[in-house]
Design a protein around this nucleic acid. Structure first.
Length: 723
DNA sequence: CGAAGCGCAATCCTCGCTGC
DNA sequence: GCAGCGAGGATTGCGCTTCG
């Protein structure tokens, strides 16, 4: 089984297509199977039809009609399809969308639009379709073509090549009808363009265009590193198989579809897996497992049964009653893959509301247990997004956490803190997402009142709501916690410096950020939206890596004199909820040469944390007697850079090695204290080897691979092993 | 003296193994 | 099937050393 299938139900921007599986007519075993199959092929399952891109039903049933009538007409415009569509798509190797009349599996609705309607809606400016989250009905109505889909469609489904005009961007902003399916599919979720105004995003993964070539085409698009390789689920899912085997499903988590369809929940509501669809790009190996476990042990509770209808809106304090309807099918709680996972060991959120990293940092006092009022009726923490521009960011966050709330990425949040015209720029976006903007005063008032107050008085509807409430003076920030975003070593040294009477320099990160113009700030990419708690902190995810790459590339274009240390500090400032400066520095340092492949450093020395060695990127001194020309230590002068070449070259990028990579011709300088002078060739080999290893042993651990690699490099005499 | 490198330890999660 | 145990992995903090 190739990995190609894993891209089938994936949007052009790499995010999963989300399905809602009708729970009453589709047998549970089939639902299980559908769930597994969809996920296997890159899609996702929604618990609520409102969150889904596609609704799967049994045609000819009353439920099918109900869903079609409710969700197909505008403005919802969700395709309601017979669940066999999934199998058909898999069998045909491509998505059978409107151009193929949904393979005849679209469930008609009572108000099926006429041709006029189709034409009318086709004439809707596409920007509207994206902006207001509606779907162009033509995608549901299908094109005029009712041709029988043939196998050769596998490479032409919904591809730019199909009409020869489209050139899809990751934001789906291009016109033409066929791709509208994906623009519409992403409706309701924060688009990357909305969340990332820089537009510094990759082009559509070619895997979508040519699913059969996923392995060759998609991997190089992403920043390849060992951790990220583990994020390609197809690389570690040896049981992946084509088609739809009948019954006898493994005990994967079941869907818990909801029959609740009566409300328009916040469109970016968080799935039960705890992640917004927008953030569910390629899940890490353990993210997948985590999401599975989270299905049963959601953030709400690890002990009480999970409600079948677990729409995020029910978690909001405004939800006064459970949305579960009496007649709703109460699907069994998804069983965790390992029952031990739900054993006595408490979940991370039960241990503390604050991230472990902050627990370590001692930002919270364990002396007294503050009241937890930033919670929903279900006891779930309310989720807040606090833009970095908000004054007293950390203090607000600490107040929220201390009292039961959580800081989350914007797409996950229930509320967004707005306190200035700068942050007000987020208002249209969050309003579109159904997220309420509030002023910090609400948090303070709640803390003072030791209870949750009505938010109305602090809700931000427009700029006028911010005017009377001047930002709190900076002096309110506590001297220690207020600098929590700074590297911990700085805090410690500040304290030590005070003891010694030494004036500690202000961290350069604040200086560099303070010098940014509003335009420059606006050009910066948005921070990672996906937080994956792990162990003592958070995982470095694909998003984290990409954020650093994007951020660094933008910042270097703004100021070529910046050092990578400064940029790391700034990045840490953006991700202070997850990764400290120290963590970023270590993360960067561990793979410095790899970052060089993806970050457009203005000067070779910019890439070095220790800018003093490797000045100007001059070639290292050739080892005596070495006849092989050693590449420059600084590969950036000889290699394509991600932002300009690698990320824009999808098909031509480095493929996964078809054969086991050979050892590099060049010795690795393992001399102690000399630094990791890995050559580009070695770096190339390193990643090819890891990619190969994962391909051939999906269960291999990173450590074991690296050990093997080290051994292979060390001996150099190991005979090449054909694959 | 500050920044960076480095090793160790703490912590937590995942998962396989084993016994009941 | 369930629970306990332990190994391994990942992240981060701490403290020391090295270097310019």
């Amino acid at each position: 089984m190739t990995s190609a299938t894993n891209s089938l139900f994936v949007q052009p921007n790499g995010l999963p297509i989300f399905f809602f599986i009708e729970p009453n007519e589709i047998p549970q075993s089939t639902r299980k199977h559908l769930t597994r199959t969809i996920e296997l092929y890159g899609g996702g399952i929604c618990m609520n039809a409102s969150q889904a891109h596609i609704i799967l039903v049994v045609r000819g049933t009353a439920e099918a009609e109900k869903y079609a009538n409710l969700w197909t007409p505008p403005p919802e415009c969700k395709p309601v399809l017979d669940y066999l569509w999934v199998k058909t798509c898999i069998g045909r190797g491509g998505l059978l969308v409107a151009d193929h009349n949904w393979d005849g599996l679209l469930v008609p609705h009572d108000e099926a639009e006429t041709d006029e309607a189709v034409i009318q809606f086709q004439s809707v400016p596409e920007s509207n379709g994206l902006a207001n989250g509606t779907i162009v009905p033509s995608m549901i109505a299908g094109g005029s073509s009712t041709d029988t889909v043939t196998s050769q469609h596998s490479s032409t489904f919904v591809t730019p090549q199909s009409n020869g005009v489209n050139s899809l961007s990751v934001n789906g902003n291009q016109s033409n009808l066929a791709p509208d399916v994906f623009r519409s599919m992403t409706s309701g979720f924060p688009s990357q363009s909305a969340l990332n105004p820089t537009g510094s995003t990759a082009t559509f993964p070619s895997a979508f265009h040519f699913p059969g070539h996923l392995v060759q085409n998609s991997i190089p698009v992403a920043f390849i590193q060992p951790q990220m390789l583990a994020q390609f689920p197809f690389l570690y899912n040896p049981t992946a198989g084509p088609g739809m085997p009948n019954g006898g499903l493994p005990d994967s988590h079941t869907t818990t579809p909801s029959t609740t369809m009566v409300t328009h929940d916040r469109q970016t509501s968080v799935t039960e897996a705890g992640s917004s669809p927008s953030s569910r790009s390629i899940p890490a190996r353990k993210e997948v497992a985590a999401s599975r476990n989270n299905l049963s042990s959601s953030r709400s509770s690890r002990t009480r049964p999970m409600a079948a209808d677990a729409s995020s809106s029910s978690k909001r304090i405004s939800a006064v009653t459970s949305r579960r309807q009496p007649g709703a099918t109460n699907v069994s709680t998804p069983a965790p893959l390992n029952s031990r996972n739900k054993s006595k060991r408490p979940g991370p959120r039960e241990r503390s509301q604050s991230p472990p990293s902050e627990r370590r940092r001692g930002l919270r006092s364990a002396a007294s247990e503050p009241s937890k009022f930033f919670v929903t009726h279900d006891g779930d923490p309310l989720r807040f997004y606090i833009p970095m521009d908000v004054g007293n960011h950390m203090e607000i966050l600490e107040n929220i956490r201390t009292h039961g709330g959580r800081g989350t990425p914007i797409g996950y949040s229930d509320y967004v803190i707005l306190d200035s015209p700068v942050t007000l720029k987020l208002l249209p976006q969050i309003q579109q997402l159904g997220i309420r903007g509030i002023t910090p005063g609400w948090v303070d008032a709640c803390v003072e009142a030791e209870g949750l107050l009505p938010v109305d008085d602090w809700e931000v509807h427009d700029e006028a709501d911010l005017l009377p409430k001047s930002p709190e003076p900076r002096s309110r920030r506590s001297p220690v916690d207020g600098n929590a975003s700074q590297p911990r070593s700085h805090k410690r040294k500040i304290q030590e410096g005070k003891k010694k009477g030494i004036a500690f320099n202000k961290p350069k990160l604040l200086e560099s950020l303070a010098s940014l113009t509003p335009e420059q700030r606006g050009a910066l990419p948005s921070g990672p939206k996906l937080l994956v708690p792990h162990a003592g902190g958070y995982r470095f995810t694909h998003e984290d890596s990409q954020f650093l790459i994007d951020y660094a590339n933008v910042r270097f274009t703004q100021d070529s004199d910046l050092s990578i240390s400064t940029i790391l500090a700034e990045v840490a400032n953006h991700t202070r909820a997850s990764h400290s400066y120290e963590s970023w520095r270590r993360y960067y340092k561990d793979q410095t040469d790899v970052w060089k492949l993806y970050i457009q450093f203005p000067f070779p020395k910019s890439a070095s944390l220790d800018a003093e060695h490797d000045v100007d990127g001059r070639d290292s001194q050739q080892p005596s007697g070495e006849t092989v020309s050693r590449p420059s230590k600084s590969p950036i002068t000889r290699r394509p850079r991600l932002s300009t070449a690698r990320r824009s070259l999808s098909e031509s990028d480095r493929p996964l090695p078809a054969i086991r990579p050979s050892t590099p011709r060049i010795d690795v300088d393992m001399e102690a204290g000399s630094g990791q002078k890995y050559t580009p060739e070695e770096v190339e080999f390193f990643f090819d080897f890891i990619a190969w290893s994962y391909m051939h042993d999906p269960e291999a651990t990173r450590t074991s691979i690296i050990r093997e690699l080290a051994e292979k490099v060390r001996t150099r005499s190991i005979t090449e092993t054909a694959c």
